[in-house]
Design a protein around this nucleic acid. Structure first.
Lengths: 138, 138
DNA sequence: ATGCACCCTGTAGCAACTATAGGGTCAAGA
DNA sequence: TCTTGACCCTATAGTTGCTACAGGGTGCAT
């Protein structure tokens, strides 16, 4: 409120598609630095905060964990360091995502098979219930 | 211990590939009925419990939530009811899984592109950091 | 009788937020 | 000026599905 370009937490949240509570939570866990306060004890953010929050949100959208985002932010702050570590993190994350995809595809396949066998009679003869029961393995 | 076929919680856990704490947790949240106790206050399970726990584990492996497993168990208990509801739950779950797969595939694609552009020089010119920064949208 | 593996309860922790309760602040309209 | 309402503040508890203690009791073999 005091300076021309100061943003309230609501402004910051709206500008990045984040909930206000989430922004405060990022501050508590140390992802976003605590901004100065106004006289009325409101957080007063600037463009740097906006950029940093944008980075955080984008990384989270891409599925990086908060711990990974913290690492990425630390690395990004060392502007003249090598980006090998960044590359490593990104590749490791890609591998995780690919593993998840293949797990889910196996799952979808099993579910599909299960559903295809159901004639929708009574529960007693339901092939889905049957497939979920331990005696019929796989 | 008292009867021939009584199983301890450890037996039950081992037979289904579950941790002992998880079995107790299923009891607390009402998925697995509380079994009778021995003189020494140990849980004494029978074959029915084993079947039910097997059903729970198999459903969880297929990615059903605990709430959905609860529903499936309730439905499975109504042996002469129609299995239409079971079918509905399974199909809804399949849809969810398929949605997750497509989300993750989009993610993997973006990560792949990001990684492909990195020449691994300094952080300042790193295309990954760049792609994570808010100014380069999407 | 003593060691050890197992069992018991109750509680706290994980990720990554989300939601409430119970208040304070600020700008605008009557 | 007063008040309404939208916003902000802190602190705490809830979500999902377990997992991991801590601090004890039980059962069996040696």
């Amino acid at each position: 409120m005091s300076r021309a370009s100061a943003l309230t937490i609501g402004d910051l949240a709206a500008a990045t598609g984040t909930k206000v509570e989430t922004v405060r939570w990022y501050e508590r866990v140390g992802l976003l630095p605590a901004p100065p306060r106004t006289e009325g004890n409101y957080r007063a953010y600037d463009a740097g905060h906006l950029r940093r929050l944008g980075f955080i949100r984008r990384s989270r959208e891409l599925g990086f964990t908060v711990a990974q985002v913290r690492e990425l932010l630390d690395l990004a702050d060392q502007r003249d360091g090598s980006c090998g570590q960044v590359d490593f993190l990104a590749r490791a994350h890609l591998t995780t995502v690919e593993q998840k995809i293949s797990d889910l595809m196996r799952l979808a396949h099993e579910l599909h098979e299960m559903i295809g066998q159901c004639d929708c009679g009574t529960v007693a003869e339901c092939r889905i219930i049957d497939a979920l029961s331990p005696h019929s393995s796989m």
